[in-house]
Design a protein around this nucleic acid. Structure first.
Lengths: 160, 160
DNA sequence: GTGCGAATACTCGGATACCGCGTGTCCGAGTAAGTGAGG
DNA sequence: CCTCACTTACTCGGACACGCGGTATCCGAGTATTCGCAC
């Protein structure tokens, strides 16, 4: 199982926008240069964040992206759902009904498949932990680990 | 993010073997017929389970697979790791060092990337929940939901 | 009837194609800013 | 000096190729069984 790299990019971009903390929008080119990412493909991921309501986009000259909400209101679950989609990683195909299970009465399948519910429990724990953490939390941890990172990034975006 | 269907197959096969609970090995063809799965591809997944030490294989006529350990000693984490691999879903590419981060002193990267540690926390919760549940737990839940499923499946394998 | 040996049928195991999705890129529609002339 | 319309340059947004990993399949190596034959 593998998560697309777009999630990592989106998280770093949101963290950068939280650090910049400015009403002026930031263009895709600037955000891409800030982490040395392919601009066109990054743009694709940013569009997904706009569709999810995490970013606001402004077209035209001096346009770009800015946070749609405060960093404390953007959870990691929001970001993962925006990029990877809201579907569950484990999708039950109900194979219990096929083969030998075809001979069983329909009432036997009233309850949820035990395999599915087990996997769902684990995935729920994952989603719960993702929903518990916000971009603001990540920024706070990053500031605690490396206090200089925020200002350096702000300055590289010409916001001082 | 999407988990391969091999995991679901493996879980159902292990559950079936736990229900059968016999020293006589079960062939790929029988296991595949039990859930109407493509035998050749199922065989591929079973080989992964053998490599992971969850199943024992016996070649030759009347050969097949049987559980290498008791169902209580096989966690869902073991199964997922056997099929999908042990790599983390979120792989940090250290993009914080690229772009603007290149101008920072190396000491700033002493601590782990905050984005990575946040995602790792969530994934750890997932793995912890997977490791907490065993095939025996799944069997118990399935028996509680549909008591007839186990015997029916046992009988379809000609084990009575 | 019994022991032995070869033929046999069945099993796992790895090597081999196919296909969908993530990855990466490009060009067009739209907009705000800048510019110049006219009043 | 102010207003206004035009040009311009820059932005986002969606449509278009490429490559890799999951999906699916087949055939070969190896072994227990089974059948036939000799004793």
């Amino acid at each position: 199982m593998r998560m697309g790299k777009g999630v990592e990019w989106a998280l770093h971009v949101l963290l950068a926008l939280a650090w910049i903390d400015d009403d002026e929008p930031v263009s895709t080119a600037q955000l891409a240069a800030g982490h040395d990412l392919p601009p066109a493909y990054l743009n694709k991921q940013l569009q997904a964040l706009v569709r999810a309501g995490l970013l606001l986009s402004e077209p035209g000259a001096r346009g770009g992206f800015r946070l749609a909400r405060r960093p404390e209101s953007i959870t990691l679950m929001d970001v993962v759902a925006a990029i990877e989609g809201s579907d569950e990683a484990f999708r039950c195909m109900e194979i219990r009904r096929r083969g030998a299970g075809a001979d069983m009465p329909a009432s036997a399948f009233r309850e949820t498949c035990a395999v599915q519910s087990s996997m769902q429990r684990a995935e729920l724990a994952w989603r719960r932990e993702l929903a518990r953490q916000t971009i603001a939390d990540v920024r706070a941890e990053a500031d605690a680990h490396a206090p200089g990172a925020g200002p350096v990034l702000r300055r590289s975006f010409g916001r001082d």
